[in-house]
Design a protein around this nucleic acid. Sequence first.
RNA 1: GGGGGCGUAGUGUAGCGGUUAACAUGCUGGCCUGUCAAGCCAGAGAUCGCGGGUUCGAAUCCCGUCGCUCCCGCCA
Length: 592
Amino acid sequence: MLKSHTCGELRAEHIGQEVKLAGWVNRRRDYGSLVFVDLRDRWGVTQVVVDAGRSPEAKETVARIGHEYVLQIEGEVVARSPESVNDKLATGEIEIQARQVRILNPAKTPPFEISGDIEPGEETRMRWRYLDLRRERMQRNIILRHNAIWFIRRYLNERGFVEIETPILFKSTPEGARDYLVPSRVHPGKFYALPQSPQQLKQLLMVAGYEKYFQIARCFRDEDQRGDRQPEFTQLDMEMSFVERDDVLDLIESLMTAMIEEVSGRGVAKKPFPRLSYAEVIDRFGTDRPDIRFGLELTDIGKIVARSDFKVFTSTIEVGNKVRAIVAPNCAGYSRKDIADLEEIVKDAGAKGLATIAVQEDGTPKSSIAKFFADDLMQELIAAVGASPGDLILMVADVPSVVNEALSALRTEFGKRLNLVANGDLSFCWVIDFPLFEWNADEDRWDPSHHMFTSPKPEHVALLDTDPGKVLSQQYDLVCNGYEVAGGSIRIHDRNVQEKIFALIGLDVEQAKERFGHMLEAFEYGAPPHGGIAPGIDRLVMLMAGEPNIREVIAFPKSQRAADLMAGAPSEVDQQQLDDLHIKLADDIKPD
RNA sequence: GGGGGCGUAGUGUAGCGGUUAACAUGCUGGCCUGUCAAGCCAGAGAUCGCGGGUUCGAAUCCCGUCGCUCCCGCCA
């Protein structure tokens, strides 16, 4: 080894020892005949002193080095004088008196500072990602990710789970997200698809009798990016046989809690995780992934405003739509401009407008719509939404989905503005009892709201024939701080039920056989009742790291346009490669 | 596919119709034996993303384009 210790481990107890350290030059402070070098590796920083008087040769070498040179230092661990102890460094009690300095490799001046306060821009970071990854922030995140994955593997192994790899080259199914396709050389005109998730394969592993399966699985979806979405991402994919919904929920809940507390040092706000029905979270928060770190819940005020003279509200109620409100505490003083900003948010969500009532300190309302309300009706409204003097009531009238989306967006905004999300805790909740289907008006059929193997609640199976929209499923989502961090379900293992689902979602028997024949066939050979879940590793690590997007916890992420700015992927390929794959580019594709 | 923001020395920012394009940091040279964001002195470094237009004059205004980013659609 070129090093006897890491740059983070030497303490007072090592004083007097001869050591070899190796790492990168974090910083150099040059006094001419006395030079300090902060040597860095992933474990920390150790100060090296090069004294021209004691080791002229080392001084000669160290005069030539710059930032990020790779050095090997040989010398003695010595105590620092009491006034020069650096308590910002774990190794600050000691320093290395260098006897010899070897340049293992010089370094060009890096395009940005590896240690320092200047945060390089996104493009710069991605272009030199290997240097970005050298920075403390990224090393901390990547190692946190490692610890989380390591924790998961140990935890599940101890509970009888088997990690099984599934193919990356698999079969395309047009349902769901757009597939990444891989052309076949030996089958002209045919394509593999990269898995959107190992969904089918893990169910087949249940048929195969493994009972408890997991995989740290890479998943691929060719859809547009968000801060919490990358074209390839990692799931903790799991499936279990002979389980019921609560078995899955309980296991994941204890896994999440233990992992977060051990690995991230953060707290879990609510234990046990609240279990809320889909209907309840939509009603209370306007979204199926509520941030339950704070209140500001939605109130339905339809019954009250129906008795006002405000036409916008009364006509909305008459046609069966909704008027709902949230209360922003202590925001009665908002200016016209502040309100206009909020209005922008609800308009983005599709709402036509935003009505507000400022409850003044004396309890009287200040509002452009106050004149449409009798005084006692106004007081009834203020009481119904639970507003106090100094509060601002915000109301939206529209179809339910627009009202909910608009108010949910406002709620999120106020969570940030009012600093209700400041503490570092993670706040989980389960969302259960989802509708099995969503009506697809364009195609005039039902779409599965999760996926087509999701089991209805047993007591709702009969409704499949009479009122599919009312059927609730055994789907469950895990939500944390407003992010969906896991989703899963108990699956269908009954062939009759499965065929009913196919029919309702508009798949005829032939199509179903073509796409899922292997699944249907497998289910005839003794499929156990089973269910599973797939937590998103990237999002969980992002939340544990306190980062604003998942790029910060992925070593080599892609840009918004799905490009690798370091390697330059995707790229053109040789004509020969295209020929091998039987691919001819369309005429309108021009080379760059 | 649509909407918003950004693009100025290596890096991060300021400048937003007329400036010698500014500041910080990094870089180069010099001084310095107790610093740890070392300090001090001197210096180099920018065709203001690219293309077009408006104007006597454009980093600045307009159009297009490319890149990064946030959001909507999309993501079973």
